[in-house]
């Protein structure tokens, strides 16, 4: 029980009258790589925002390492967030800073590290995502996929305990995609990090995951190992994995 890094119980969230999450329960344990699947607009990014406390649930509790996120006061919340790295779906790099300064920002603002050490960390992380030669470029000069990799490097500079990936390989070419997949795997194998990965790429989902969860109509409808997922009897899950047009997913929408 206590070893769960993230624990969500009975979480519900609505934007106005629109219910997004409804009595959702999800626990993520230490060193797991949980892949969250779900349709576009099902609330996956919203789920990640709840974990870092950007959004507060209308009901239920979200805990990070046993402490309730929505009850934390601002200074504590900020200290908790330093242990979490977030890779944004649309990168969210600071457009007025170049790549180097984007990566340096959390290190300079939150740690007492010296400049040489900061530079060393930046070089190391940029190398991990294969972007060493872009240090002096501005985000606007990079392609979407390149920005995404910088965003990934930025999430890693603080050596977070929990990393949240929002569609890390969407928009990347197959080779770089595999590089990113392997990077995600090695992060939890070489360090004690835990990851939650939102992705639509089924191949990489099965490659990365130690556990998978399917978000459907505001709830986690299946939460199991990748193997069990493949063999799932749930019609929604099997339709989603196979990408078939026949099944309950589209029917419900009509």
């Amino acid at each position: 029980m206590d070893e769960s890094v993230v624990d969500m119980k009975g979480v519900s969230l609505a934007f106005g009258a629109k219910k997004i999450l409804n009595d959702l329960n999800l626990a993520v344990h230490s060193r797991e790589r949980l892949v969250v699947l779900g349709q576009s607009g099902s609330g996956k990014s919203t789920l990640l925002r709840l974990i870092v406390g950007i959004l507060r649930p209308n009901g239920g509790v979200v805990r990070f390492k046993g402490r309730e996120v929505s009850r934390m006061r601002r200074p504590h919340l900020n200290r908790m967030r330093q242990k979490i790295g977030m890779v944004y779906q649309y990168s969210a790099l600071i457009s007025s800073l170049n790549v180097r300064d984007n990566l340096a920002l959390p290190l300079e603002e939150l740690t007492d590290k010296k400049e040489e050490e900061i530079n060393r960390i930046i070089d190391e992380k940029l190398d991990m995502v294969g972007m060493s030669d872009t240090k002096n470029q501005m985000p606007a000069e990079l392609s979407g996929g390149m920005r995404k990799r910088i965003g990934l490097a930025r999430a890693l500079v603080m050596e977070p305990e929990l990393i949240l990936f929002d569609e890390p390989s969407a928009g990347l070419d197959p080779v770089i995609s595999s590089v990113i997949d392997e990077l995600i795997i090695s992060l939890t194998e070489k360090t004690d990090a835990t990851s939650i990965i939102v992705t639509h790429e089924m191949d990489s989902a099965f490659k990365i995951a130690t556990r998978m969860a399917m978000l459907y109509q505001g709830n986690i409808i299946e939460n199991d190992t990748p193997d069990a997922f493949r063999r799932s009897k749930n019609a929604v899950v099997s339709q989603f994995i196979s990408g078939s047009t026949q099944g309950p997913i589209l029917e419900k929408k009509k």
Binding site: R49, V52, I54, R74, L77, N78, R79, M80, R81, Q82, I84, M86, Y88, Y90, A92, L93, I94, S95, L105, P106, E109, L110, M158
Partner: peptide
């Protein structure tokens, strides 16, 4: 709009 403020917040920078 481009989620930069949110990213700064999520990093704990304030």
């Amino acid at each position: 709009v481009s989620e930069e403020v949110e990213a700064i917040e999520a990093m704990g920078i304030g």
